[in-house]
Nucleic acid binder design. Structure first.
Lengths: 211, 211
DNA sequence: GTCTATAAAGAGATAGAC
DNA sequence: GTCTATCTCTTTATAGAC
């Protein structure tokens, strides 16, 4: 928050954030395990030991990146509706808001979230991230369940299956979305919500229902 | 096809398929790069060089596993509808059939498909697999496009976005589905098709529309 | 079909100078 | 904040015996 690499004057001289950005990009390109410190050093135009000046270990780089992604996603579920009359809003409205918010976090934090979604839990750092991710998933499932109880969502599909499939759709965005493409984040969120809530089938033209 | 490991009498004596199964499981557990030949040897109760008797390289193990997954998926799009009156069926019906078929391939070939979906394209083997996967994606997009032209699917969302999101939902199944769970493959395919085509929103109870 | 032994390269990480 | 040099361990893969 205090001092960005790109805002600095003077010679290269990386700070932690500057290195982090390059590292996350490389991790996403080759995979975390396949990316060696030597490769990072090469990309940065630094020696390996220069990297160890900024981070205690390769694991710590991953830790900081995953924390950024998780913080963004957690913020989405923790603030149900920024409007003000938050508590009064329906679970369905909050769910829709969370789906849109998640799409925006994915797009805004694309590299970090991409990395997060590929974590398998091999190291302590990865397991710690998975614990937070599962807590997030549980909150989504609870929200779906509440929306089903309200009667606004179909209740013939298990809430946890709904939550997983809906977020499976959202998370898959990291596989192909690239900033600057034809599809903006708002439009993409609209599409996701449209498919998830109303489906792909063209409504059987029931008269003159407005949009 | 000819001789399965589990059907053999006598002492361990692995064949290629037997090793392949263990290897794919390990690759999915730790990631391909993080899984060393030494770890595979330990799991198999063999020495490292015994593995090299069955495969020319670590890459070749991956190659065979990815081919199995891709062959399964390709079979789904290549045989539109097994009914017989294939050519006459609508694109929408064929699309629904493909969605269900893909879910079944995912479930039946869970380990191999899981591995395929994690491939990033770092090696020649991985790039070869990605080429086949992209060809598959294009056929799905074409099918969606055709279904939109028929007027059966909403046309306000780009066909390639629809294809990616729908398969994002389907592919995410590998992240959580475990055989023997409460959800069978048929039920799961029903759920996927229900969400994708009709959405989560409970229809506004328009009288007494039958199921 | 499996073994031991080994080669050759690359990994993560540290020491200490500038 | 970065460097060179180095340590130690692990990696993929091969040679050759049983």
């Amino acid at each position: 928050m205090s001092e960005m690499q790109s805002t600095r004057r003077g010679r290269p001289g990386y700070d932690q954030q500057g290195i982090l950005g390059v590292a996350v990009a490389a991790f996403n390109e080759y995979g975390y395990d396949a990316t060696s410190i030597g490769m990072l050093a090469e990309r940065l135009g630094l020696s390996k030991s220069a990297i160890y000046h900024h981070f205690g270990s390769k694991d710590e780089i991953l830790d900081l990146a995953l924390d950024a992604a998780l913080s963004g996603l957690e913020a989405v579920v923790e603030d149900p509706l920024p409007g003000g009359t938050a508590e009064a809003s329906s679970a369905t409205a909050r769910l829709e808001h969370v789906l849109r918010g998640a799409v925006h976090v994915l797009v805004d934090q694309l590299p970090a979230v991409t990395l997060l979604l590929r974590v398998r839990g091999n190291t302590e750092v990865e397991r710690k991230a998975l614990v937070r991710r599962r807590a997030f998933d549980r909150r989504i499932t609870a929200l779906v369940s509440e929306a089903q109880s309200e009667g606004a969502l179909r209740a013939d599909i298990d809430a946890s299956v709904v939550a997983r499939l809906a977020f499976g759709m959202i998370n898959s965005i990291v596989e192909w979305y690239r900033p600057g493409g034809r599809e903006g984040a708002d439009r993409l969120a609209d599409d996701v919500v449209a498919i998830a809530l109303d489906g792909l089938r063209k409504p059987a033209d029931a008269g003159t229902a407005a949009v």
